[in-house]
Design a protein around this nucleic acid. Structure first.
Lengths: 313, 313
DNA sequence: GAATACTTTTGTCCTAGACAAATTATACAC
DNA sequence: GTGTATAATTTGTCTAGGACAAAAGTATTC
């Protein structure tokens, strides 16, 4: 404040607890990495406690991103910043081939990066009015989501920008859901995510589609433990439990979680799994219906209703 | 499934990590309590790892609740369930004196426990129409929040019920914010929570109050790392950073997080901390303004504007 | 009654070893 | 080549006490 930056920056000392909070890596893991891979090797304060630098924190975050892409700690924890960045770049390039840069995306992404929130919001509001909610989600939100995710992986946008974007979209979707919410017909659908999956937008998009189709939605937000999903499904007498999985989730955790849930859930209750994860992972779990796109929701609903009326009749 | 409960319940074995997640007590603290006070003294699995019982978890939750009421661990960790319940009972009675059992609370909580979602929503919608958003928040949401929190601590409601409640309120508040959101005057306020604090309702309630008062709000949702708050605040040129803290957060972490953030944030940007946490913890961090109630927001805003215009003139 | 110094309480951090769950590599049969 | 069982490796979490600083409570003095 009183002094301008001169040569050495004022070296912010971060405790292991702060690093744990900011990176999501447990204290145990941080100490283990230091022991095994030699990074991060923090300085110590007078009391022998580790003091990390902001640089180390940045690098840890980058390592985290690489791990989300499927790389393993042993390969990357000791790697240099350049190698890490190369990894994230490559992984993204491979994906970009499939998705050409279409119309509205660059605009929104640029407004976001330029911190022009009001304009971004205006753009989105206009788009939802012009296209209607469903087309808005499919043509605008889904592509932008993907683009924002990739940009974040590449480090082109900060977490706070992703948060900001997510907040705006959440507002829009919740407003749409609010007006589309009738007393609700069959089926009764419960929506949430498993623990570890904290992205809300997937749930909200699904809820929008279902509400517009006249289904009765009960959303539990995010991160509901399996045992709670089971008891909630029973308590509310739902017909279908829908779970959303973002790309950030580990496919393995998702599959084991689904299998576990399927086993504990009443067999008459259907289990549907959707979200960006399933477009790149093609696993199947017995007794689980996978919806790789939001557009699969209306037919799946129609199918359910046909089966139901057939059985009822 | 295939076997009915017979005599011994199927003893759910809980790892120390699960107990940490469910109680908010760190592994270190749990081990320390065991060493010092002899509780909880979990069984061990074949590998020597602690395995807690659901009963122990319930008792830990009750202990936590007693601590939230101001009792210290040394007095209560070794106490029996009866003593604990007596403590909470007394404490609750003390509080109830100030807040007579008003109308809406028992009703909503009961609807929630009875899984009567539609009715609960209707009730809330009617309340917001009748009272207006601000009074609705103060007279309905805040008391219910407290009640839901206590009920959860006491184990009277499940996580999924809390999730469900939170979702309904979120819908209502976001709708209110949407219609109260103008282009925005000064000051420009950025709202979020620190990592570890995942309760959104606090942020949304604050945002509602600020929007109604004409301030320009930029919400980043929840769990924004300190370094991102700093860069986002700079990028958006905000005047105030507002953080929300729920009762669930450890006061210690909250204070260190705040102090850390205050140090890194441009000194011209004010830092306001609000939320239920500060009504029971009376700490102060230099350079941070504490708002123990939502009703403190309008005067604080007026104060800011007065100072600003004074300085500008 | 308020301010100061002293004592107890309490949570976090430390080291370094152990082990299970998950992943990858290898061997072998078809 | 493809599939499967077995072995090796990787990786995160758990454990045990010891140490210490910050906070809360208590005693002493003005």
């Amino acid at each position: 404040m009183d002094k301008k930056d001169h040569g050495r920056p004022p070296f912010k000392a971060l405790s292991i607890a702060m690093v744990e909070r900011d990176t999501g890596l447990s204290k145990d893991t941080l100490r283990m990495w230091e022991r095994r891979y030699g990074f991060p090797r923090p300085a110590r304060d007078g009391n022998g406690a580790r003091t990390y630098t902001p640089d180390q924190l940045d690098r840890l975050r980058l390592i985290r991103r690489c791990m989300d892409l499927g790389l393993r700690p042993g390969k990357i924890v000791a790697a240099s910043m350049h190698e890490l960045i190369a990894h994230t770049g490559n992984a993204v390039d491979v994906r970009n081939k499939t998705k050409a840069p279409t119309g509205p995306l660059p605009g929104v992404l640029q407004l976001l990066k330029a911190q022009r929130v009001a304009e971004m919001r205006d753009f989105l509001v206009q788009a939802v009015m012009r296209l209607g909610v469903l087309r808005f989600i499919l043509d605008v939100i889904v592509p932008i989501n993907a683009e924002v995710g990739h940009a974040w992986m590449r480090g082109e946008i900060a977490i706070h920008e992703e948060h900001l974007y997510s907040e705006q979209v959440q507002h829009l979707l919740r407003q749409a859901i609010g007006s589309a919410m009738h007393r609700g017909l069959a089926p009764r659908v419960m929506l949430t995510t498993l623990p570890g999956e904290e992205h809300q937008l997937g749930v909200l998009m699904a809820q929008t589609f279902l509400s517009v189709e006249g289904a009765q939605c009960i959303s539990l937000g995010v991160q509901t433990p399996a045992s709670d999903i089971v008891s909630a499904a029973r308590a509310h007498g739902v017909d279908i439990v829908g779970l959303s999985f973002s790309q950030a989730m580990q496919p393995r955790n998702a599959c084991t979680g689904l299998a576990d849930l399927r086993q504990r859930l009443d067999s008459r209750i259907e289990l549907w799994a959707g979200g960006a994860l399933w477009s790149r992972v093609r696993k199947s779990v017995p007794g689980v219906r996978f919806l790789s796109s939001l557009t699969d929701i209306p037919p799946a609903l129609a199918d359910w209703r046909a089966r139901r009326s057939g059985r009822a009749a």
